[in-house]
Amino acid sequence: MEDHAPLEGPGIEEPLDLVKLSLDERIYVKLRGDRELRGKLHAYDGHLNMVLGDVEETITVVDVNEDTMEEVVRTVRRNCEMLFVRGDGVILVSPPSRSA
């Protein structure tokens, strides 16, 4: 019934295969709440719950100066040795090595 050839070769038939191929690779994860993670993917499931190792989390915070109403964007970074990510916060997963 799949009459199209998967673009990325035999490895990818469904979107989660892209995540499967990223196991033990460093990936980029975009989360709700203006959070981003970069870390090594140790495990995942169909909810996109993930265990990441050696993680750098980047949080983008917008501060509003109440006097001038100016918006100041700043980023907060922190590192975690091991992190469990609940899948419902995930927006996007990408292998960072191939990102520009």
Partner: peptide, 24 residues
């Protein structure tokens, strides 16, 4: 969704580019 040659657009402007992406 799995996309290739992905561009992320915010307000119509390209903010990021990724080779492959998984969008939940």
């Amino acid at each position: 969704i799995a996309l290739e040659q992905t561009e992320e657009l915010v307000n119509g402007q390209v903010k990021n580019q990724y080779g492959d992406t998984f969008i939940r």
